[in-house]
Write a protein that binds this DNA or RNA. Structure first.
Ligand SMILES: [Mn+2]
Ligand SMILES: [Mn+2]
Ligand SMILES: [Zn+2]
Ligand SMILES: [Zn+2]
Lengths: 138, 138
DNA sequence: TTTTTATTGAAAATCGTTTTCAATAAGTAT
DNA sequence: ATACTTATTGAAAACGATTTTCAATAAAAA
């Protein structure tokens, strides 16, 4: 499990592999914190100085399109990205340090059935996110 | 239950009641769809032509501050607002027409306890949102 | 190596939002 | 009612984030 997985995915989808894209991939892949475009830019430029902010936006766009990263919605803003989890998962965020973890095993079936019955809605999907303090911050 | 409730709330908190604010309140209060600032502006200007977009932003800011409205996060964007529910509630959104409903009675206690145990996090709050098709759209 | 063309970063354009500011009008005191 | 104080207003300018344009470059194919 390394960044080469993402690189191959880009390649397999007809995208060329460049130094700029490697720098962005290296930065975002494996980050334990959600990163905004500017944050990606600042970090990635330490690996590849000539990198342009525009390319960060364009690369994030492609990674999101390939479901390799996902946008993280937070009270402070919704522009940050994190590696996408595999399969059906949800996020757990530390309100202090911004660390992100995935969890699965939520069982919302009886809940959604209930709501569907009460409201008449046909429920297609759900967003669930937990906020709290991580082991280091509690 | 009318817009006068919001008007009083504004008044009680030292804000003056103006035609511009009435137009915004009349537009947002009771809307079954989340509205963006521009959408509020377009609708409210039919009630009060001289209204400025700036005032829409400023009024929404105050309504949010008083917890009378809340921001709605969606895949397409996170700038829209809807009347805030009372107490602990969650949103149910129609993916077709954008209608918003509230629901309560979710019991996530055992889930959060589980996740807390597995991850070591101290969980403080949660976001839960359901998406689907409303009665009219299904 | 040569050729093709996707990708690049700089600069300009655009979009949503915020700030500035002088004029106005809401609420209060007279 | 009238005068007074000051919060509120909308227009214009400023701002920050994102997107578009474009000529130069470099990745991949021939
Ligand atoms: Mn789930
Ligand atoms: Mn809940
Ligand atoms: Zn933490
Ligand atoms: Zn609908």
């Amino acid at each position: 499990m390394s960044t080469e997985i993402w690189i191959s995915q880009l390649q397999d989808n007809g995208y060329r592999i460049t130094s700029a894209r490697r720098a962005v991939v290296d930065t975002v892949y494996g980050s334990t914190h959600a990163l905004t475009p500017i944050e990606v830019y600042d970090k990635a430029r330490k690996k590849y100085r000539a990198l342009g902010l525009v390319t960060v936006y364009r690369t994030l766009e492609k990674l999101e399109e390939l479901h390799l990263i996902q946008r993280v919605h937070q009270p402070i803003g919704c522009q940050a990205f994190i590696s996408a989890g595999v399969g059906h998962q949800h996020l757990l965020l530390c309100q202090n340090c911004g660390q992100v973890e995935f969890f699965d095993g939520d069982d919302l079936d009886s809940l959604t059935k209930n709501i569907a019955r009460k409201t008449g809605y046909q429920i297609k999907e759900h967003w669930l996110q937990l906020f709290g303090l991580c082991v280091d911050c509690r």
